[in-house]
Design a protein around this nucleic acid. Structure first.
Length: 320
DNA sequence: AAGACGAAAGTGGTTGA
DNA sequence: TCAACAACTTTCGTCTT
């Protein structure tokens, strides 16, 4: 039996494709919504339909009756970037015969021959496969401990794959590169985790993680959105049980601080913390400096310094 | 007693010669 | 490679609520 399911050679693939297919061509936003019922992928930012007829690669689960079982027409497990061969495990066998056992016509045979050659060339029986198996296990473990969403995890996997293609994993610690990929994808997807948070779940040191991260960013020419304190507000806000209204005000204040040029070169977590403190007092949802510094992983002193500076420079009124 | 304040010394990372 | 530097941390004594 001959099954034609081409697996393109990694080198033939456009290197940037894997990332770009996850971002909107109009505005570059990465917040794409899969609409499986309509088969579209939509940018949640500008509403552009990014791809029509996307493949539903989720599992085709339930089948209660015989009829339904018949209808389960898709083959194989769902594909995902977090399995080392994306779950595509079809092989082309060596018979030059079709499914009825008939000999193939010569032109067809030549095609199959080419496909087979590529499949063998790209077959992941090599060190890359072993590397990916370990890496994806580590990715699983780390991302579940960090509690990051599945979409971010998939992005990490894409980044890691590209890092392998670029031959920058070799000779480096797998766990460090996985952690760096996670850090990068968290920043791309705007659900930032700090370097410290990530390395607290691994055995690698912060310095190592930072170096690996730089390596990834430099080599994969990912355009990295600058970390904004606003990205941290919702997370800190949740942990401090602040109302949505207050979180909104905090964002407004941060925006104002940015306009006045008070944010450059400052630790974004410290800034977010200071603004939460200020707005908390103004809006009657006061949190102590200690509480805030704890969730923001900065010291009270930093919260204090930032908040003093903001009050002075923006001439804010804060009741004591 | 808890929270806020600020001074002073120390730390790790960046920059520019 | 080294020193200067800015931002941040640690520590601690004092003041306020």
């Amino acid at each position: 039996m001959v099954i034609i399911k081409e697996r393109p050679h990694p080198k033939l693939e456009d290197k940037t494709e894997a990332i770009e297919e996850l971002s909107c061509p109009e505005c570059g936003s990465l917040d794409l919504i899969n609409d499986m019922t309509r088969g579209e992928m939509i940018c949640s930012n500008c509403g552009v339909v990014v791809t029509e007829r996307i493949m539903d690669n989720g599992p085709e689960w339930r089948a209660f009756t015989n009829d339904e079982r018949e209808k389960r027409s898709r083959v194989g497990a769902p594909t995902t970037y977090t399995v080392h061969d994306k779950g595509l495990s079809t092989m082309i066998d060596w018979h030059d015969k079709d499914i009825y056992g008939k000999k193939l016509p010569p032109n067809r045979r030549a095609q199959i021959y080419r496909l087979r050659k590529w499949q063998i060339r790209t077959r992941v029986h090599s060190s890359i496969a072993r590397n990916l198996v370990i890496a994806m296990n580590e990715l699983d473990r780390l991302s579940s401990q960090l509690g990051i969403p599945k979409s971010v995890k998939e992005t990490s996997a894409v980044i890691y794959r590209r890092a392998i293609e670029r031959r920058i994993i070799r000779g480096r610690s797998i766990s460090a590169m996985v952690a760096a990929a996670i850090y990068a994808s968290c920043r791309i997807r705007k659900v930032p985790r700090t370097l410290d948070e990530i390395c607290s779940y691994t055995s690698i040191r912060r310095k190592e993680l930072g170096r690996s991260y730089r390596l990834i960013v430099d080599n994969l020419n990912i355009h990295m959105p600058i970390a904004s304190p606003i990205d941290y507000v919702s997370r800190f806000g949740e942990e401090l049980e602040l109302s949505g209204r207050v979180q909104q005000k905090v964002c407004e204040l941060l925006e104002k601080a940015r306009e006045y040029g008070l944010t450059a070169g400052k630790d974004p977590t410290g800034l977010a913390a200071a603004c939460i403190y200020i707005i908390g007092i103004q809006e009657g949802e006061r949190r102590t400096q200690r509480e805030i510094s704890k969730v923001a992983h900065v010291t009270e002193v930093t919260v204090r310094n930032r908040y003093k500076e903001l009050v002075k420079k923006l001439k804010l009124k804060v009741e004591v």
